[in-house]
Write a protein that binds this DNA or RNA. Structure first.
Length: 644
DNA sequence: GTTTCGGTTCTTTTT
DNA sequence: GAACCGAAAC
């Protein structure tokens, strides 16, 4: 194990955090102040003090953050830290639930349904209860209302009444849909993302022996991005550290941008009240951005009332002020950004030094076209995640059904790939098979063959043969995927997609991924919680491309040059947040703007279009974003390029 | 009665 | 680009 000279690699603020004693710690780490650096060294310090890796729990918000931190700890201590628990809340909850699912009315092999599945299921619930989709709230809307209630631990029925008691909707009908949705998940032995957290908390609350077991397992718990935890997550943490209270939470209330998902800002604001002898530390020395950028950040966040006062201090030399560029349209903006990027490239920046951060995915549209025309290499981190793409889901549905005979969604997905089978036939088949299809049951397989129409039957016959050569006690994932592709999916993909080759490569990658797990079920148990395959694997290591993505996705990242487009009222802040007229919504948008600004190291470019495309095709004028107007004029360079 | 296809509309943010 | 709707095709 390497001996680390903590004094020399940490500043005083950081050193105090890293070497502090046991008990609850609140670390308020402003943007760019070396939060990850500090966390990683704290873990290293604990290990150096003799703590066992498997007795440390590190909770993060994204898989990426977890991986990064574990890698860095590993590198730092030069010792095997295998056994350390590091991952997202959902991962922790899933890992605990897999062991004790019976205690909350599930069995070990429950399936996790992702947001796309949830939506499909919700649509089915609405239809099957006989409601016309047009007059009913959209599945997405219902899911977000239900999910919000669950994550905030509020009674769902009450929230439904509050939200939909507007004369336009029938509250009782919506409650019926909610009950139906819950029932179906239970029947299918499935949990959605919210259930994972909810059931885990329920498990720990109702089973003191289980809670005690995990309490005894961890000597120390660290939580990253604490400002984004919701009520359930905070409660899980509270239960896990009860007794020793060896807990370090790190966060920045300025960067709380997930309240729409139930994140409770108050968790961090009231931490000192909930944990009586907690110590508070502040990290305010910023190593990332030039002072001119921090001036804008400090000025913008000043507009928010509810906050721990923090001021970012730069360690860097003065450079240039951020620019505010007014352009006419979205297309003009795209052209300007192209030129801007090419200029920076000439100045010596790499493409990968630059990033475009926007409020919503659709803000990237004109930019993508312009970049293609100008041959600027770019990558869009789109809204659809790797595991939510159609071809991936097709293959996973097949694997899921093998492991969980009650998985109606997967069964339906599989059947509907056959010519002539739509939603009605799929659910009819399911019903006639007795709401279960076990691929290891000879009678189930024979029944299905009898029920299928000729065309579908021919397809299924080929797939059915796969099950002749496998047994339920030794399921070879890779073999099954390959067979499935050979006898059916390869051809299907070619008929279905114009980029079938690329998609089939993804499927090969999945097969490779499955190999890394010790069984197919251990892979499938986690697959819904994975955002992507290894990012490096996916797009090659460190390609020199401009990155486009949402601000939410950019959290924790940094680039020398950052461009923020669509700074117009209705775009950023979003139309929804304006229409709701709630101070909290707007404050969250402002924090989002703050997050975007603080991603920039050297240069920041704010783009303000004057007109946007209307729904009908014409143009409508739009006002400059209030966030730009709030920045004092003397802190920025205002440009109005004539040709745009 | 179902499925499929083509045209139209509208995009918040994620585990 | 995906979700929804209406109409054609099976």
């Amino acid at each position: 194990m390497n001996k680390i000279d903590f004094k020399s690699v940490l500043n005083e603020e950081q050193y105090n955090v890293v070497t502090s004693g046991h008990g609850p710690l609140l670390v308020l780490a402003a943007a760019g102040t070396g939060k990850t650096h500090t966390l990683v060294h704290r873990v290293a310090y604990l290990l150096e003090q003799g703590m066992k890796p498997e007795r440390i729990l590190l909770l993060t918000f994204t898989n990426k953050a977890a991986r990064e931190m574990l890698d860095r700890v590993n590198l730092l201590v030069g010792q095997d830290i295998y056994g350390m628990w590091g991952g997202t809340f959902h991962h922790l909850a899933n890992r605990i639930l897999r062991k004790h699912a019976q205690r909350v009315g599930f069995n070990q092999n429950y399936t996790i349904i992702d947001s796309a599945d949830s939506k499909t299921l919700m649509t089915q619930c609405i239809r099957d209860l006989g409601f016309k989709t047009k007059e009913f709230p959209k599945p997405q809307v219902l899911l977000s209302v239900f999910g919000l209630a669950v994550n905030m631990e509020l009674p769902v029925e009450e929230q439904i009444s509050l939200r939909f008691n507007d004369g336009e909707h029938n509250v009782d009908d919506i409650i019926r849909v909610y009950d139906e949705y819950e029932n179906r998940k239970l029947n299918m032995m499935s949990m959605d993302f919210d259930d994972i957290l909810k059931k885990c908390l329920q498990l720990l609350r109702e089973n003191p022996d289980v809670a005690e077991r995990y309490r005894a397992q961890f000597d120390y718990v660290l939580v990253d991005e604490y400002q984004d935890t919701n009520s359930i997550q905070a409660n899980i943490v509270d239960l896990l550290v009860k007794g020793h209270n060896n807990l370090m939470v790190v966060g920045d209330d300025f960067q709380s941008i997930y309240s729409w998902r139930g994140a409770n800002f108050e968790n961090i604001m009231s931490f000192l009240d909930r944990y009586e002898n907690a110590e508070k530390f502040m990290l305010e020395t910023n190593y990332r951005s030039v002072p001119e950028i921090l001036d804008v950040a400090n000025a913008c966040i000043g507009g928010n009332v509810h906050q721990f006062k923090k001021v970012l201090r730069s360690t860097r030399e003065s450079y240039i002020k951020p620019s505010v560029v007014t352009v006419r349209t979205g297309d003009a903006q795209a052209k300007y950004i192209c030129q801007y990027i090419m200029n920076k490239k000439h100045e010596g920046y790499k493409y990968s030094d630059m990033s475009i951060l926007y409020r919503s995915h659709f803000h990237s549209m004109e930019l993508e076209f312009a970049f293609l025309r100008q041959n600027i290499p770019f990558i869009v981190t789109s809204g659809i995640r790797f595991f939510e793409q159609a071809h991936i889901k097709d293959v996973c549905a097949f694997l899921r059904l093998i492991l969980n005979p009650g998985d109606e969604l997967s069964f339906a997905r599989l059947m509907m790939m056959f010519q002539g089978v739509g939603p009605k036939s799929a659910s009819g088949l399911w019903r006639r098979l007795g709401a279960s299809f076990d691929v290891f049951s000879k009678s189930d397989r024979e029944n299905l063959l009898l029920l299928l129409k000729p065309v579908a039957k021919e397809h299924w016959k080929n797939i059915d043969k796969i099950f002749d050569s496998i047994s339920s006690d030794n399921i070879e994932g890779v073999f099954i995927v390959n067979e499935y592709v050979d006898v059916f999916y390869d051809k299907y993909a070619k008929d279905q997609f114009d980029n079938a080759d690329k998609r089939m490569e993804d499927i090969t990658a999945i097969a490779g991924y499955i190999k890394q797990y010790d069984s197919l079920s251990s892979f499938m148990n986690e697959v819904a919680l994975l955002t992507s395959l290894d990012e490096e694997q996916q797009m090659g290591v460190a390609q020199d491309v401009v990155r486009l993505g949402t601000i939410h996705q950019a959290k924790g990242l940094e680039w020398p040059v950052v461009i923020i487009p669509w700074l117009a009222e209705g775009m950023f802040p979003s139309r929804k947040s304006i229409d709701e007229e709630s101070l909290e919504k707007i404050e969250e948008e402002r924090r989002l703007f703050y997050v975007a600004v603080t991603r920039a190291e050297d240069e920041l470019c704010l783009c303000v279009p004057q007109i946007s495309r209307a729904k009908t095709g014409g143009y409508i004028p739009c006002n400059p974003s209030r966030f730009v107007k709030e920045v004092p004029l003397e802190l920025v360079r205002s440009e109005r390029p004539l040709i745009f």
